[in-house]
Design a binder for these strands. Sequence first.
DNA 1: ATATTAAACTGGTAAGACCAGATAACCACG
DNA 2: CGTGGTTATCTGGTCTTACCAGTTTAATAT
Lengths: 241, 241
Amino acid sequence: MLKSDEKLPLLKPVPTQRASEVIFEQIRDMILSGELKKGDRLPSERSMMTMLQRSRPTIREALRMLERAELIKTIPGSGGAIVQEPSSQSVEVPLETLLALNNTGNRELWEYRNLNEVAAAGWAAERRSEEDLVAMLGYIEASKHVNNMSEFFRLDRDFHEAIASAGKNRIAQLVDKVLHKIVILRLDEGYRKKNAKERKRMIEQVIESHMQLYEAIERQDVFDAQQKMREHIEMFFNDIE
Amino acid sequence: MLKSDEKLPLLKPVPTQRASEVIFEQIRDMILSGELKKGDRLPSERSMMTMLQRSRPTIREALRMLERAELIKTIPGSGGAIVQEPSSQSVEVPLETLLALNNTGNRELWEYRNLNEVAAAGWAAERRSEEDLVAMLGYIEASKHVNNMSEFFRLDRDFHEAIASAGKNRIAQLVDKVLHKIVILRLDEGYRKKNAKERKRMIEQVIESHMQLYEAIERQDVFDAQQKMREHIEMFFNDIE
DNA sequence: ATATTAAACTGGTAAGACCAGATAACCACG
DNA sequence: CGTGGTTATCTGGTCTTACCAGTTTAATAT
């Protein structure tokens, strides 16, 4: 006889599948396997009822799950959900909540951002195309005529993304995007305390730093690009301490 | 007058809020702000009906979204969903689908994995504790008596995670986890073609490589740890080409 | 006390209904 | 000949009611 509080490591809890879960997986796998491509339309909820032999609430629960995974987008009245390819946002959001709840320290954050950006800068110096250079320079020029901090931060993000993009490694691009967002969130608190003059000086400093970075990448000087990026990241880190 | 096909960049599509979405955000924010902590129970669906003045299907849609975000876990009959802190899985799954759909190339994958692991090895050499060393050595020893490939891959993953953990950077740990999984997926295809003898030789090679890595970390030789990791990763990369 | 049973939950699902937008076909009007 | 408006009919969003199958809890009998 078994006591009720005895644990049996050999026996795993049997996973009871929800119908909505099964539908979710089925449609997700069709998208992942390429059977359903971006832009395709799912049948209407009512016709899925008859196809899947399930009630509408059940099907709608599955659709909500697909929606949160950014695999579909539903527009009321327009007939059928539309298949999407998930953007990097589908990983940004959970990563942000994860980093927020895990209370990831500034040291970890900057350490990793430094790693990622320095590598991206090096790869960019190796592989940048003419278009990459044009894009980067465009963001630098634009940031010279900026009026508020949030606009400046956005251009800073675009500039860094352009570098990551020039490095031709999409994983680095993704990491760049997510970490930049979180870094800005933490920097923003500090910059609110500064006055207009200090902020203006800071912006000029950053633009100068970006320009040096650009020049190193332009002349394909891998080592210098990495070095300039290291200094650039460090500059921000000092600002938050 | 406006032509129907004219685009108005100034006017953004008005976002129509679904009730289930509002409920989702409300509960998510309560978890993120710490108002609801891990282990807490949400009210039952029926009591939420009266609290939120919404029907059960609506509330259930919100619960399915929270579930996908790994913020809650629902067990039938047990009364109320249980608040969870999202694990790294909540990021792994979307990241995997993203990398799968983006068709991320092997070059990008190995390049970034190399970056991450080399950095982790360096940090581990600096910061490893005695417990970290014990854990790493344990995985090496265990992998000497392994019988099948999947078990070996699991121990390889644990060993690498132990290094990342010893490096005391949770972002690197997360990246390690995700990339390892994807790398194994791609390696596995290749190893199926090899015969038992080749596989055995390969396993011995990896264990030897792990041992050297361990020794470098043990004696806190940052440079050598990085170098050994570089060679280790490269070894696998050659195997897939 | 302990074992058994019954009542009162809970989540999972179904069916039917209504509304507000969107769509498309049609029709009258200039 | 459009052009604009009307209408029937789609769609998704939501509510209500209802039933089932497990789990928990409390009352019960041993």
